[in-house]
Structures are given as C-alpha cells and as structure tokens.
Amino acid sequence: MTTVVELEIPAARLGFDRTFDRVSTFEFQVGGMIGDSPPLIWASGPDRDAVARALEADPSVDVIASLGDGGESPTGASDGAGTDVGPGDRWLFRTEFGDAAKLFTEIVTDNDGAILTARGRNGRWLVKLLFHDRESVSACHDLLEQYEYRATVTRISGVDDLASAQTPLTETQYETICKAHELGYFDVPRGVTLKELAAELDVSHQALSERLRRSHAALVSAELSERTAPMAIDP
C-alpha cells in the first residue's frame, strides 16, 4: 500500500540550525528537493536583511541568489500557522544545501520515496514523504537512524485513509499520482509513457493528461501555500 510518512528532524541534523539560532522567528518552506537543481526557499522572519544575513552565515546552506519577496508568492498564501502571509512577509532564495540534506534526499529516493513537502520552524524540519509500501518506509527509516538524523515519525497514513494523510489531492488524483510514481512515469528517463499509463488506469490519454495537470497544480499550490485539506469534490 502506498504510504505517506510525516517526520520531524532537528535542524542541527539537516540544515538551517545556525539560522534558527540567529533568527528565532525564522521559518522556511522548500519549493522541491527532487533532482540536482538548487531548490527555492520561501523564508520568513523579522525582516529580509536579518534573514539574508543569517542564511549567508549558515555553513549548512549556500545562498546562490535572492530572487523576490512575498509579493510574488501565490495569492492567499499561508505561513502554516493559520495566518495569511502578505506582501513583504516572505522572501524567496535559491540555495544549495549541504551534504546532510543531499544525503537525506538520496536515502528517500533510493528507497522509492518522494519528498512531497519540506518546511521548518522552531529549529525543526517538518517533512512529508511518499513511499510505495511499508517495506520502503522501514528501509528508509533504518538508514535515517544509521546516519543519526534523529527523525521522529509523527504520522503514517495509507491511501485508504486519505483524509488523515492531509493531501490536497482528491482520492482519484492521489491514486493516479501513486500509480504514475510506482510505474516510473516521473523517472528520468520515464519508465512508462503517458499512453501506457492511461491504459494501465483504463482512462483516455486526454483525461489522464488533464488529471495529472490538476494533480500537479494542487501539489504545487499546497507546497507554496500550505493549504493541505483534502478537496471535497473530485474534478
């Protein structure tokens, strides 16, 4: 069964520890950790200069560029604590993570996992992972213990309890993404074509394409806004 796992990991083990020490109100949200491209980070704190100085002084991360402010974030974005994030409240940085974060990503992907969301506050990372099955979860957890990430599992949810998984996807979208991931549709090179995936799911090529676009849009929106309540109606 496809499984969603939520973890808490101390920043001292994964990154941004010095930034949290220098800026107690620092919070961040990662715009994706898959692939070799340096990820984008939405960061917040008392002011942009304080956050930028703390990030630049943090040995666990290399700031490549400062790209924009909260005015460029999605409309109605949330800081994850139920408070709307307005213009100027969040700032966008392109960063290069250190070895600990890169190894974490490798451990997850090598065990057929995917990082759905990654954010942090109060000196801890909050990470949501997707796995094909419980065996992959166990193997990944064993490696995280071996490398002393001090990860605490806060929730494990299967596809049968979609609501508790707090995914922005509908059940149909969720099952489609899981099947696409399982068959290697998102791999490079792809393990299955869109036509083959459509046949596997017994839907038309066009219907599957539209479903995947809606699913991607929902995941991106949730990643950037933290609105992760399940949708009531399946489009």
Rank of each mutant, 00 (worst) to 15 (best):
A65V: 05
R134F: 02
P87Q: 05
V4R: 08
A139M: 12
R121I: 02
T117F: 13
D84Q: 14
E72W: 12
T176R: 12
R94C: 01
T154Q: 12
A54F: 05
M231A: 09
L129N: 07
G76E: 10
E6Q: 10
S24T: 13
Q29A: 11
W125E: 00
A151L: 08
P38G: 07
T154I: 15
E96S: 15
K179S: 10
G191C: 03
T176A: 13
D84R: 14
S78T: 15
L116N: 06
V220S: 06
S136N: 15
A50P: 08
T83M: 06
L92C: 11
V108A: 07
S37Y: 04
P189Q: 02
D187Q: 06
A54P: 11
D234N: 09
G88M: 08
D89N: 12
L14K: 04
L14D: 00
A65E: 14
A65W: 04
I177A: 03
R134P: 00
L67H: 11
K195A: 13
T117M: 11
S66N: 07
D69W: 12
T193C: 04
P87A: 06
W42V: 02
E8R: 13
F104P: 03
S136L: 04
P230G: 03
T83C: 02
A11Q: 11
K195I: 05
